[in-house]
Design a binder for these strands. Structure first.
Lengths: 297, 297
DNA sequence: CTGAAAGCGCTAACAG
DNA sequence: CTGTTAGCGCTTTCAG
């Protein structure tokens, strides 16, 4: 009977089976290459198990976020991957817990498992690299205040300084959005300081590129006058001039593992309570070098 | 009766209404900032009218592509936005025509309306800019052979040369994928020529950045020794060293208009038969300048 | 204008 | 082991 070109109606199937075989990914900004590569990993494993991936981009706006969250309640999606660091209020119901997973950014107070790297350790490794090179006046171009990732990386920055008995100078940390212009502006402020830093640790490659731009515009060189370290290892990091020393995140794997974990949870498999911590990697390129007037390590 | 926290079950609603209020976007690669920004526009408009956006990334692979196309047949999505330049065989049915729209890349032979820029004119404008600067030996780092966009931009390149009575030298056009390394390799080959070009028109900013990298690695400067022009105006174009002269595509608007047009089609409104041609803009920055030994314009 | 009922296409349970 | 049937939650039609 069912030969020719029969295809099941997934709407009816979903109604009957009470599952949509779709997941929603809520992300703060898709134009950032970081997120899109995680998304690629998600999509890849989802495809293999017949899951569809819905995206909820433009989601810095809480109203839009709530509208997206609604999708889980209406049954169009079976689960939600949260990459925006916030748990929409209507998803707070404990009965929904097993349908949710935080990705890249932990959601404090939610108790949700998270797939991510150890941001503190990663930042500490990056700053220790600078310290090892002989730098002592190291600035930190940080993310937006209130953000969990920003906080973790800042702690790592402080920890690396503490390891050599230094206290952080508050004037050397600048908070702001994870964007290129934000890096440019922060660097300008740092350069205007009475005693500018000899090295800068930036919390994203985009910011690092912005910082380098400002440094070059001021007639200084990288790493000659200032060393710069980024974070993420986006495609353009190795292609920039100079190629960026940065922390590589296993973006693709974060996506794959997150989707796998969510599927498990949907199937009733609890999995690790706190989620997964994946390894990062410090990629040393040419934007970091010993300081100009190196008074010994 | 329906007070408290009642939410309609969209699965049942969809079954009854015979519509999913979801669209699928098939894209070749999401990590490319170009596509992600178009996607953002799509998502934005879709959100306003209550449509969900499913993504089909990893779709250079025809098998995966067909699997994705299946989604339309099974009724999970009402329409498909095709950004990969191909019409999956199972969607060739004329009855499905009004559920499809090509975006950015025309699909030859499909007769599908397309939302895009005039690639030929844009490439011609870019190359004419180089010609106007006094360049005569201009290379073209092109996209992959067989691609419609590649062909259109190549025609634009040829047309710009023809305007000053020049025939293109086949050795000066290098075809390859729209990627950074592809730009690097193509440039290396161009530099190895007996008479290297004095300017290069690249079919994407990523390729242009790759090309500049190779030029710098060879000890030459941009635009001192060679001028480079890109295409797309991604975020990093203005931040590169030197800032890239490039063709800006209205990516966000392409996404918005495409989604709007698709919704119209789903509602039975035919709309423009050939689709929409949106304006591009030549952004002149610092990677292009007159040739070193300028023997008059 | 309000209320009951049919049926969208499927799967799972049950009867033959 | 094959064939029939109930019902998933909604909307729409039709009767009251």
């Amino acid at each position: 009977v069912r030969q020719a070109s029969y295809v099941v109606n997934r709407m009816a199937q979903g109604l009957r089976l009470r599952e949509a075989r779709q997941v929603l990914v809520i992300l703060p900004e898709i134009s950032n290459p970081y997120f899109s590569e995680v998304l690629l990993g998600i999509e890849e494993v989802a495809g293999k198990t017949g899951f569809g991936v819905l995206i909820g981009a433009s989601a810095r706006d809480p109203e839009r976020e709530d509208q997206l969250a609604q999708q889980l309640l209406t049954g169009v999606v079976d689960g939600v991957l949260l990459m925006n660091g916030r748990l929409p209020p209507r998803l707070a119901d404990p009965a929904l817990r097993h349908r949710l997973l935080a990705v890249a950014e932990r959601i404090p107070g939610s108790g949700l498992p998270t797939v991510h790297i150890d941001d503190l350790a990663a930042a500490q490794a990056a700053v220790s690299h600078l310290v090892g090179l002989g730098h002592r006046r190291i600035a930190h171009i940080a993310g937006p205040i209130g953000n969990v990732v920003t906080a973790a990386r800042h702690k790592g920055y402080v920890a690396a300084l503490a390891q050599v008995g230094m206290a952080p100078d508050p004037a050397l940390t600048r908070f702001g959005p994870f964007a290129l212009d934000s890096g440019e502006m922060a660097m300008a402020a740092l350069l205007a300081l009475p005693t500018p830093p000899t090295a800068v640790f930036c919390t994203s490659d985009e910011m690092a590129i912005g910082a380098i731009r400002t440094i070059k515009a001021a007639g200084l060189t990288v790493p000659g006058d200032l060393s710069v370290v980024g974070f993420d290892d986006i495609v353009f990091a190795r292609a920039y001039d100079p190629p960026l020393t940065t922390v590589r995140q296993p973006r693709h794997r974060i996506g794959c593992d997150a989707m796998r974990l969510l599927e498990d949870r949907l199937n009733g498999i609890e999995g690790p309570r706190r989620g997964l911590v994946l390894p990062f990697e410090l990629i040393i390129r040419e934007s970091s070098a010993p300081p100009k007037h190196h008074h010994g390590a």
